[in-house]
Write a protein that binds this DNA or RNA. Structure first.
Lengths: 192, 192
DNA sequence: CGCGACGTTGATTTGCCTCAACGATTGTGG
DNA sequence: CCACAATCGTTGAGGCAAATCAACGTCGCG
């Protein structure tokens, strides 16, 4: 719970009373490796804060291939935003890549807190703004760089992820096949 | 100004006093075709609401090629979110594709309004959530479909854009060359 | 131990790009 | 109002980045 508090206070300071209100609605969960906290067809009921471990948000296409949209490790948030806010059935999955501990808050509880603590809605606005900018940069990069360049900048941008994720997952995030990522890695090792 | 009010009230109802506060900070602008309201290196000072006309948000890569990130036509919002909130120099451009009329609000004015009218920050949170979901779907689609499939769904998803945008701009949005889009259009016309 | 996830390699194929050229349309300055 | 330039859409030949398919070795785990 301390982790959540510290993370929030990076953006905004909450009073003790405000903090009590929030903490009251937050539930701690232990999640096993490969366990899914969201499946296609379900409504995404929770916004989840990762205390420890690592998750991926992904979709499955018509051919049955998986495509990673986002990773979330320590101090990051994860949810299917579209499903969460519209209360619509999700087309995505959220799965633990490692054994993890998370804090979850339900949609209606979060909304209730928004009206009691306006600052909280701004905090969540900031969270999503940052994620939006990240996604936007990713779209731009996908359009303007080769897979090799994108892989190198992935390593630079997410060192805390790249040294613990299987290459299969990184390939899926980059939108390439694991085979091709393997070739990229080979080429890079030759160069140095 | 009526356009803005109607658009806002789709999400939230503001009182007359709240509305006065907001309207007071909003400036109307006429923008010519090809005129830029944001250039690389500038800080994005304004969140802009499109009353009439059409804009594109784009970046230029190392090779000098342009890549469209987003379009905004009537009743849509446009800004470089990253630059706007962090007050950092933008790497992007916003350009009018048609002669346009917009309503602009400055960053510090918007922030001041957030604290006076908490509902407003939630409204802007909703706006960005919707844009986030749109971007996320786009990333997924780019990974799982061919350019032809993506073009067909672009036509379906944005009929109000596809019938007024030059194909060059659509190609740039899709991340393909105009030449290849031309071939896709040819193939599609054969089929039907 | 045996199975499934993971990483790698090679041969072949394909989706899309590059470059070059050409009409048609638009728009703009003289 | 015309002439010329710029933008736009299209076509074709050739090339490259990445996918596909198949095979194989390794490792961790039930």
């Amino acid at each position: 719970m301390q982790a959540l508090l510290q993370n929030f206070q990076k953006y905004f300071s909450f009073s003790a009373e405000e903090w009590t209100l929030i903490a009251d609605k937050v539930k701690k969960q232990s999640i096993k490796r490969r366990q899914k906290i969201l499946q296609e067809g379900e409504v995404c009921k929770y916004y989840s804060f990762v205390v420890s471990g690592c998750f991926r948000l992904y979709g499955i296409d018509d051919k049955g291939d998986e495509h990673n949209i986002q990773f979330a490790a320590e101090n990051d948030w994860i949810a299917d935003i579209g499903s969460f806010y519209a209360k619509k059935a999700s087309k995505l999955y959220i799965e633990a890549i490692e054994p993890s501990i998370i804090l979850q808050i339900e949609q209606q509880d979060l909304y209730a807190l928004y009206s009691k603590i306006p600052k909280l809605s701004i905090a969540f606005k900031v969270i999503i703004e940052n994620k939006y900018v990240e996604l936007q940069n990713r779209v731009l990069q996908n359009f303007s760089s080769t897979a090799q360049q994108r892989y190198v900048s992935f390593l630079e941008q997410y060192p805390h992820l790249s040294n613990r994720l299987p290459n299969t997952q990184i390939a899926s995030y980059m939108g390439i096949t694991p085979e091709f990522l393997s070739k990229i890695r080979k080429d890079l090792s030759k160069k140095s």
